[in-house]
Write a protein that binds this DNA or RNA. Structure first.
Lengths: 343, 343
DNA sequence: CTGAAAGCGCTTACAG
DNA sequence: CTGAAAGCGCTTACAG
């Protein structure tokens, strides 16, 4: 009811103690639900807490306890529609635990550096989930020496536990699907990973090449392009591919977003899908099903959930092996792939 | 080169001081780039920092300085495709400032409560951006008494500065567009806001009603539905509307996501857009242009950028008025609206 | 230019 | 059951 002490800031534990006529230790006990406090005392303290609208400083608490009860997630989620699903999985995996999640976006190398500066000492968060990006070796070293549990999701590092998929295998499956439909002129739009990012796309490209080689189809350099994951960039690349003298009858895009760009390019050129052109993506993000896109589904939600699970395991002091856990990929055939046109 | 002291944790300032043969105050001075340190001493300290791979504890720093150099953003971004654009704007607005951004997702009331518990004392973040959600009055009170600068984006509260749009006006513009195309049977799919969320959609509904009333079209209760923002929910509602005996020739959806659900329902029913049905959304999220959706554009990116700008202003101690800054809305006519079918 | 000491707001042995 | 005191790892007057 009465105004807060010193209009300045929030009440501190000492204010509560003073008002309740007890020591700070007792207030702390009440705050933390310890049993050994006389009911009458407890009541008085709680009354003071209410009157002062008191809430303990989590920073002071963190410093004293040497833990924060928050888990940090570092990921490039702006440019990554699949990131949202992954974070959903993380939230799901963390639900029921006492940990809160704070997300830090890393779009540029500079932002990535700052993210790790913030987290790697382990005093902002008790554990770290690094998603779709790869920490520099120096950071990994610091994280380890700080004893900060860290799990990689959608990335691989020799000294960190990780959740990933077999990208090369997925790329191969996608390409084989096209081959089985009778396609021979199959192009590929890869994804340029930024320096600091895990190099998954190149693996998908490797799978593409492998599939072609297996059946003796020559890999034509003019059919293999690469660009950032942005839709309009992919549209530009697809337009080039589709105006080639000997244009491909099928395109494997390294991500659904790029597949959408490819579909737009085809539409703009009046090329019918799948009659004249088959398109397959990778990821199976939410909109893929609405658009009827054939794609390679990777368990995005599950990757986050499982990452959180491993992190909680590590946080509870149990052992987590430094190994890569591979999640299954699945070919989802929808409306954008069909038999190769007869020439 | 040598192993860290006590394999346990990271080096502390005292370890650095010891190794450099100076006091901790001197290390602190070097750390913070103060001028008054003898070059030779500085070098020795820096050498020790490097050798120990030392990084100061930001928690200890925060407690001592009473500020964190981080800005918190609280928003329901999983279910909100427009949230990503807004956060991009925030990041842009913060770039060049010394503040880092941490994002906290609030999908449920429980998560919202925890978010505010984490932030409202002002010791996790120096400032708060609350986006597309409304803090309970008790929280607003605590935030104010903690002296924590807080800006609302896409929400309005009597005692907080805010950035918003004229939702009723936007709803009216959308509906008037349909009226001007000759539509009379115009339905509306509203968005059920969770308890804790800003009630923007109802305003859009109000604008819809106002537009109809202005031209003397009766508001038919069976034409006004409401559901959560999920695409498949909107699809269900649209299916009901489109199978009504006297089905509407136009639908105004309170968000682009719901407009997409409406488009899917129409496609499934074999109803051609825009020949037989006009659809208009709200937001102009990224995919809207790819799909050719007519919509009311609101400056998502700009709302975040401007919110960050106001927050920085407040953080620098300058005055920020408690008022709502309205951002402009714009009708974007694309391919999903057309003249009403002749009956 | 530099160091010893107090203080930021908590928690937790330790001693009553 | 309860309080005085030390400690978490920094910063910053204050005194040399």
């Amino acid at each position: 009811m009465e105004p807060l002490p010193g209009s300045g800031g929030a009440a501190r534990i000492a204010d509560v103690a003073a008002r309740a006529g007890v020591g700070v230790a007792t207030v702390s006990r009440v705050l933390n639900g310890r049993a050994n406090v006389r009911p009458a005392t407890r009541d008085r303290v709680q009354e003071a807490i209410r009157a002062l609208n008191y809430r303990p400083s989590s920073v002071a608490r963190s410093l004293s306890l040497q833990r924060t009860m928050v888990v940090g997630a570092v990921l490039p989620w702006f440019t990554n529609p699949s990131a949202v699903q992954r974070v959903r999985g993380i939230v799901e995996g963390l639900s029921g635990s006492p940990y809160d999640l704070m997300v830090f976006d890393v779009e540029s190398e500079d932002r990535q550096r700052r993210a790790f500066e913030l987290f790697d000492r382990g005093d902002r968060a008790d554990g770290l989930l690094v998603v779709s990006t790869l920490p520099p070796d120096a950071e990994v070293e610091r994280i380890r020496s700080a004893g900060l549990p860290c799990i990689l999701v959608d990335g691989v590092h020799p000294s960190l536990p990780s959740i990933a998929v077999d990208d090369a295998g997925g790329g191969e499956t996608a390409t084989r699907h096209l081959i089985e439909l009778g396609h021979r002129r199959i192009a590929h739009i890869g994804d340029t990973p930024p320096e600091f990012r895990f190099d998954w796309s190149r693996d998908r490209t490797r799978g593409y090449e492998r599939a072609l080689e297996r059946v003796g189809i020559e890999v034509r350099p003019e059919y293999v392009r690469e660009g950032t994951r942005l839709l309009h960039v992919a549209r530009g690349i697809a337009t080039e591919l589709l105006t080639l003298p000997d244009r491909p009858t099928a395109i494997f895009a390294a991500s659904d977003t790029q597949a959408f760009g490819t579909l737009e390019a085809a539409r703009a050129l009046g090329i019918r899908v799948p009659e004249e052109l088959s398109v397959i993506g990778f990821d199976d993000i939410e909109v893929a099903s609405h658009v009827g896109l054939t794609t390679i589904r990777q368990p995005l939600f599950e990757s986050g959930r499982r990452g959180a699970e491993l992190l909680l395991r590590a946080l509870s002091g149990r052992r987590v092996d430094v190994r890569t856990e591979l999640l299954p990929l699945e070919l989802i055939v929808r409306a954008t792939t069909g038999p190769a046109p007869r020439t």
